[in-house]
Amino acid sequence: MSAVLGIVTIVLVTAGAVLFLAGTLGLLRFPDTLSRLHAISKADNLGLGLIVLGLLPQAASVTGGLKLICVWLLAQLSAATASQLLGRAVYRGRREP
């Protein structure tokens, strides 16, 4: 059982790490702010989500697992707000140069 859980953790965390790598690559390579935001939000949401999901089987207790999920939800909330604010600033900057 624990071997299966270990494999689940390894697969999911690796997938999350790959997403973070792809997001970082996009952040560095994409030409403008909006597409960079698009790249990094994938890493933030899905990448962190996969890592949290992968770590859940390793959580020592139910409350520990809940804390992990809370971390993901809070990161989602703050990332979404920051993206909206950045996108808004770009949009306003374009309209009123």
Binding site: C70, L74, L77, S78, A80, T81, Q84, L85, R88
Partner: peptide, 15 residues
């Protein structure tokens, strides 16, 4: 005040 900031300021403080 941008709308998303107001939203965050309503949702986040309880947590």
């Amino acid at each position: 005040v941008p709308g998303p900031l107001t939203y965050l300021a309503r949702i986040l403080p309880p947590f």
